[in-house]
């Protein structure tokens, strides 16, 4: 399998000399499910931000779907982002729009033909099992439901990679589990998933590959089993 994401000796320093990532190298393959773990401040978010080009590396190279951080021009960033889906701990839904509108928004602002918007929205709503809440506004939904809407929005542009930054951080255990199940399902349908989390129970519940960061260094990379076919079995551990 060809590498979809390749980090080559990536260092990220923030102003005032804070080093978030220190010479990190790894690759992610197409269709892979990968956990990114480590304590807060270890650099998990930085890796996600570098992948969807919210930030640029201080040194080293980040290559995502054939686009290198060295040569990527600002104009090409939106094009790259349309192939990625991103969800966050705080959902980031627009409070004054319904579930369906929140999802449609992602299609509208990327210039999708209006006729194709509704069917696509319905399809992802079904996928995240929220058809019944299509007209609800975010404040009428539970945390788990809001995260499902966010995931649906991330999926609606058919990304090849879904990035999830602590997607269960604001959820109770049960909702967290169901979000993880949903992500596994999405992965089985062929989308690669990179999920940052410090919830080790969730990580242990699956047999996916795990990258562990500590103080900006990659200290652990294990469980590189092909996902989809064999992985995702709860309780399994390959370490």
């Amino acid at each position: 399998m060809s590498a979809m994401v390749r980090f080559t000796r990536v260092t990220k320093q923030y102003p005032k000399g804070v080093t978030a990532l220190d010479e990190v190298s790894f690759t992610l393959d197409r269709g892979e499910f990968t956990f990114l773990t480590g304590p807060s401040g270890a650099g998990k978010s930085s890796i996600l931000k570098l992948i969807f080009v919210e930030e640029r590396p201080t040194s080293g190279e980040v290559k995502v779907i054939g686009q290198s951080s060295v040569t990527l021009t600002p104009k090409k960033i939106p094009v790259l982002r349309r192939k990625l889906g991103v969800v966050f701990q705080d959902f980031r839904l627009l409070p004054d729009r319904t579930t369906a509108e929140n999802i449609a928004f992602a299609l509208e602002v990327t210039g999708a033909p209006p006729k194709r918007i509704d069917p696509k929205v319905m399809r992802v709503l079904e996928q995240v099992d929220l058809l019944a809440k299509a007209d609800a506004r975010p404040h009428e939904l539970s945390g788990g439901e809001q995260q499902r809407v966010a995931i649906a929005r991330a999926l609606v542009n058919d990304p090849v990679l879904l990035l999830a930054d602590e997607p269960t951080g604001n959820l109770d255990e049960r909702s967290a589990r169901s979000i993880l199940d949903l992500l596994c399902e999405i992965n089985r349908a062929g989308t690669a998933v990179l999920m940052a989390t410090h919830d080790l129970d969730l990580v242990r519940a699956t047999s996916f590959r795990t990258l562990e960061l500590h103080h900006g260094r990659l200290v652990f990379d294990a469980g590189t089993m092909a996902s989809g076919a064999t992985a995702g079995v709860p309780g399994g551990s390959s370490t």
């Binding site: 600002p74 939106p78 982002r81 349309r82 928004f105 602002v109 990327t110 210039g111 929005r153």
Partner: peptide
């Protein structure tokens, strides 16, 4: 700002935003 953030996230072009 939240709307702009989502637009950027899902890959809306600068002109579109």
């Amino acid at each position: 700002a939240p709307e702009i953030q989502v637009m950027r996230l899902v890959g809306a072009t600068r002109g579109f935003i």
